[in-house]
Amino acid sequence: MKLGILVNEGPYTHQASDTAYQFTKAALEKGHEIFRVFFYHDGVNNGTRLTVPPQDDRNLQQAWSELAEKHNLDLVVCIAAAQRRGILDEGEAKRHGKDASNIAPGFRISGLGQLVESGIVADRLVVFGD
């Protein structure tokens, strides 16, 4: 089955991103196709490479990045939600005159149309939120 994933909460405060990650990993192991993982609302905070969780805790951003590399996943952070919350890639940082970017490896910034496209193209769009 072709699945679209939507993550609506940031890491650590809510379990949504953990559950979405575990679900995505399990779906891939079962041979399903993940069309795209879209991060919206505070979910965009999963895509900053500047998180430094305690060593005995899971590193969700790293987990997503590694999963993306292994399975060639399309991890998309909503641009409007990201800009509100300070998630920038190099191009956006330059465009807005900011002194740094923080997007994590394997993530890219794009528009909400990518979420709607997931709903259209995927057999199921699975939403993880509060």
Binding site: H41, A80, L115, E117
Partner: peptide, 13 residues
């Protein structure tokens, strides 16, 4: 607010 933003984008599809 952010839900409404998705709704408006989806209208283009």
């Amino acid at each position: 607010l952010e839900a409404l933003e998705v709704v408006l984008i989806s209208a283009a599809f």
